[in-house]
Design a protein around this nucleic acid. Structure first.
Length: 178
DNA sequence: CCCTGATTCGC
DNA sequence: GCGAATCAGG
């Protein structure tokens, strides 16, 4: 995945919005936070104003609002309780669609219609691209206006219908490689 | 250990 | 130019 004009533009926007490099990397997809930081430096926009955006640095112990109820599948009747953990696996992040057809060129959509959208708030008009780690606090859906006929905004539509780039998490130290 | 950005340097 | 590896820190 390369730094297209559009991706650079989004990078600039998110960076100036105070998002962290890893958050931006997650939103862009196909790049690591190292790549984002490297690009930021090459663009000469390192150092930014104080970020009012909620940094993931320290998570608040209590969510501001009650956590959204976890949806569960209506298909199977509630099984007889053997273990109490049955619901755990119910949240499955929307699967990234596999590459199919090459879509037309979409324009970059605007800001999210819903900030921090939960799955329950998604409608026909909102991009259903999952952002962040399901189960983690910051997880939400993109929720920019979706393009007609497809469940994604212009930007994510392109990600969705492109071959899934290897989403490397190589920022981890290699264990054992003393 | 989780995370952050900064820097280096082989590609 | 790119970004993994590394560094320095919260």
């Amino acid at each position: 995945m390369s730094w297209t004009d559009e991706r650079v533009e989004l990078l600039k926007k998110l960076w100036s919005d105070g998002l962290s490099a890893s958050q931006i990397a997650a939103e862009l997809g196909g790049v690591t936070r190292n790549a984002v930081i490297g690009k930021v430096h090459r663009l000469g926009l390192s150092g930014r104003a104080k970020a009012p955006a909620p940094q993931t640095a320290q998570r608040p112990k209590k969510p501001v609002a009650a956590p959204p109820p976890r949806p569960h599948r209506p298909t199977a009747p509630t099984p007889i309780t053997i273990g109490a953990t049955a619901l755990k696996a119910d949240i499955v992040p929307a699967a990234r669609p596999q590459p199919s057809t090459q879509p037309k060129v979409y324009s970059l959509s605007d800001a999210p219609l819903i900030n921090n959208a939960s799955i329950l708030q998604l409608t026909e008009q909102t991009c259903k691209w999952p952002v962040g780690d399901p189960g983690s606090d910051g997880f939400h859906f993109c929720a920019r206006r979706s393009e007609a006929g497809i469940p994604y905004c212009g930007y994510h539509a392109r990600m969705a219908y492109q071959p899934v780039a290897d989403r490397r998490r190589t920022d981890r130290r290699i264990a054992g490689a003393a």
